[in-house]
């Protein structure tokens, strides 16, 4: 669309800007202020300079939490994206079935995150949970409080259960926007199922997929409530992700300075990744407009 250059548009932005600035900029400034001081209360504080940053960057616990975080985010993306595309291709397109499947698939997205944790906590318990009990009956010593492998596996299954619907729905809406004529043309050309997917459906999906991957990366990167409820970060610290380390430090231990420094590092990582994604999306749209 040809947009008009008009700086009066800022007037329309202002109310939003005031609100978001109140919720975003003031707290961010405060975090920066905390990060260079040792704060006991508003009157008792000492300037520490970069000390907290040095400490946080060299903290092995946080470094391993960061690595775990990346490993987790990549794993869930690798599972959820193909699975989500698959589900979207399978979903019926018309009739009451379409609505019913749509609602059922959306269901996990609408459950509060800690309830998701509770659901899986109940589901995987060895004594009262169907999955935990079932696996034990099958002869597998399943125990998420003892075995790090089980805990990891369960958290990944939980995340797949929770978030694949987002990818599936994004792709489903992408698929719905393909005109029927494309499929007819493909039928006339006797294109194989794979060719239809590769040359008709996938190109339409790239746009929504980038959004989906972006959202999924971000949400998996700040995952907190579900593993906290399910495993409490254990066994040991095998499922302690960044958000949880941060929250423990900030709320549990009241270490304002170090947790603020950690927040900023965390934020910078997110900022870089989202900038890369955003630039990619924007360039894709530009190419599309230029090519059309």
């Amino acid at each position: 669309m040809n947009k008009v250059y008009d700086n009066k548009a800022w007037l329309l932005i202002l109310p939003m800007l005031a609100l978001v600035a109140f919720s975003a900029i003031i707290p961010l400034m405060t975090v920066v202020n905390y990060s260079v001081q040792d704060v006991f209360d508003a009157n008792t504080r000492f300037f520490t300079g970069t000390e907290w940053f040095v400490q946080m960057l060299n903290d092995p616990a946080l470094q391993s939490a960061l690595l775990r975080q990346f490993a987790f985010s990549l794993t869930v993306l690798c599972i959820e994206v193909p699975l989500g595309i698959g589900i979207a291709l399978l979903m019926p397109k018309k009739g009451w079935q379409a609505s019913a499947v749509l609602i059922l698939v959306t269901l996990p997205l609408l459950i509060p995150w800690n309830v998701v944790g509770s659901i899986w906590q109940i589901f995987t318990r060895g004594d009262i949970g169907l999955m935990g009990w079932g696996l034990r009956e099958l002869g597998y010593e399943y125990n998420i409080t003892r075995s790090a492998v089980d805990a990891w596996g369960t958290i990944i299954i939980m995340d797949v259960w929770h978030w694949t619907p987002l990818i599936a729905l994004l792709c489903y809406s992408g698929l719905r926007s393909i005109p029927e004529a494309y499929y007819q043309a493909a039928r006339i050309d006797r294109a194989s199922r794979w060719a239809v997917f590769r040359f008709i459906q996938l190109p339409k999906l790239t746009n929504v997929l980038v959004i989906g991957v972006l959202l999924r990366f971000m949400h998996s990167f700040m995952i907190y409530a579900e593993p906290f409820v399910l495993t409490g970060g254990g066994p040991g610290s095998s499922t302690t992700f960044l958000s949880q380390s941060l929250t423990t430090m900030a709320i549990g231990q009241q270490d304002l300075g170090p947790s603020a420094a950690f927040s900023l590092i965390y934020f910078l990582i997110i900022l870089l990744v989202s900038w890369v994604f955003y630039t990619a999306i924007m360039n894709m749209q530009k190419d599309k407009e230029g090519g059309a």
Binding site: K3, D6, L242, L246, F267
Partner: peptide, 24 residues
């Protein structure tokens, strides 16, 4: 509309979408 800083403002908004609540 196009206006000064529109792209950057939009990106800044999106970063808020991605900011982990734990930070704030």
């Amino acid at each position: 509309y196009h206006f000064i800083g529109d792209k950057h403002l939009f990106f800044w908004l999106l970063t808020n979408l991605m900011a982990p609540p734990a930070v704030f």
